[in-house]
């Protein structure tokens, strides 16, 4: 099964993204900030990270940079989903190492479609 880590400090967002992805057949775990995500990724190899931007302790950009650095060193795709829609935010996400940047709210179909696309080859459920 394709393993996804949903990273968001908002419990409601984690619940929403997790429910949608589980329903689509993904194996989903959660982290409540960037550091938790980094620690989780050190223990378990994930096939996709869905990462928020504004989080305490370690924000989304710093999280993605750390996931890409030798501290974790994962090449798995990263989807950043933010409430921010300022100019330059998407560039910042791509610089950090994200594969795709989306602005909230993200509807159910689109999230699943994008997650499936990013993990193409792995696919959701077998």
């Amino acid at each position: 099964m394709t393993r996804v880590l949903v990273v968001d400090d908002a419990a409601t967002v984690r619940l929403y993204h997790t429910s949608l992805l589980r329903e689509a057949g993904f194996d989903v775990a959660e982290a409540a900030n960037g550091l938790e995500a980094v620690e989780a990724a050190m223990s378990t190899p994930y096939d996709l990270f869905v990462v928020d931007v504004n989080m305490p302790k370690m924000n989304g950009y710093a999280c993605v940079e750390t996931l890409r650095s030798e501290t974790v060193g994962t090449a798995a795709p990263v989807l950043m989903i933010s409430t921010e829609d300022r100019p330059g935010d998407a560039d910042r996400a791509y610089q950090a190492g994200a594969n795709l940047y989306m602005v909230k709210p993200v509807d159910a179909e689109r999230l699943v479609r994008v997650a499936t696309m990013l993990t193409a080859g792995k696919g959701p459920a077998a």
Partner: peptide
């Protein structure tokens, strides 16, 4: 701030 690290650290 446009810098995510700064605005979240300040909110904390």
């Amino acid at each position: 701030s446009d810098e995510a690290g700064l605005r979240t650290a300040v909110a904390e």
